Simulated assay, not measured.
Amino acid sequence: MTRPAETRQRIISAVLRIVGDDGIAGVTNRRIAQEAGVSLGSVTYHFATQQDLLRESLRYFVTEETKRFGELAKENSTECADLTQVVELVGQVAEATGTDSERIAPYELYLHAGRDPELRAAAAECFAAYDRLAATVLTSIGVKDADQVAGAVVGMVMGLKLRALATGSGTEDLVDGLMLLAKGSTTTTTE
């Protein structure tokens, strides 16, 4: 017998795959139930509205990503004492995330948040989590005013990752862009 938390998780994972494959328009309760291997009633039991489902799917994705990146930052904090190592690590992480449907899904959800005030609050929470993580990493390499720089770094990473997803290119642009931004941030702190 599947526990409610497991069912809920299967539903969220199915939504992320569907959104990544076919966009928000592809999300129907029947398709979610089929993809998740649950009853149609389970979908509506766990999520009263599609907005609840989309909001929780986005939050889940970012919570998992933030946790994963946070652990990675902790593991490498002593090994990545210099800027080049940190930027290379970010490039490796970006490359490892790939272009599968679950990686495309958050971008679809962020765009949808621009049209949907209910989802906008979840998107704001997600970006705040990314900003906190970026500020932590930037502080560890000595960037002055890391909290102020974090949003720009997150924006650059997100934009360049979107570019890579859309064009099929690698992460070279991301690594180069981060290096330029980070060098500029650390240069101003030593003057």
Rank of each mutant, 00 (worst) to 15 (best):
R55I: 09
G26F: 01
T97S: 12
H112S: 11
R115K: 14
D100H: 13
G70C: 04
L54I: 03
A81R: 11
Q85L: 11
A94E: 08
F69N: 14
A105H: 01
V62S: 07
T28K: 09
T66F: 02
F69W: 14
V93M: 07
S57N: 04
S13P: 00
V38M: 08
D82Q: 09
Y45V: 07
N29Q: 15
R68H: 08
D82C: 05
G23L: 05
K74F: 09
I11S: 04
S39P: 04
T66H: 10
E6F: 03
G98N: 07
E95V: 01
G91P: 03
E71C: 02
F61I: 01
L54S: 02
E108V: 05
R68F: 08
Y110G: 05
V62C: 06
T49R: 10
D22C: 05
Y60I: 00
L111P: 01
E71A: 09
V27P: 00
E35T: 15
E6R: 09
T66P: 00
Y60N: 10
V15H: 07
I18E: 03
E102V: 15
T66E: 07
R17C: 08
D22K: 09
R17D: 13
S101V: 06
P106V: 03
R30M: 09
A105T: 01
D82P: 01
G98M: 04
Q34R: 14
R17L: 11
L111H: 12
T7P: 01
D82L: 02
L58E: 02
R59Q: 10
E88A: 11
V62R: 04
F61Q: 05
E102P: 02
A94Y: 01
E102S: 11
I32E: 03
P117I: 10
K74A: 13
L16S: 08
T63P: 00
S42Y: 05
T97K: 11
Y60Q: 13
E35N: 02
A36C: 06
T66S: 10
G70Y: 03
R30G: 13
A5L: 09
Y107D: 03
T28I: 05
L83K: 07
R17G: 07
A113V: 05
N29R: 15
A96W: 01
K67S: 14
D22T: 14
R30D: 12
E56L: 11
S39E: 13
V43H: 10
T66C: 01
Q9G: 12
V38S: 09
D82E: 11
D100P: 00
L109W: 03
G41V: 09
V93H: 05
R115D: 15
E64S: 07
E6Q: 14
A5M: 06
G37C: 08
V93P: 00
G26K: 04
P106W: 03
A33C: 05
V87C: 11
V90H: 00
L54Q: 01
S42W: 06
S57D: 02
V38E: 09
L83G: 05
E102M: 12
Y107F: 15
E35S: 09
D116Q: 12
I104G: 00
T7Y: 02
I11R: 02
A14L: 06
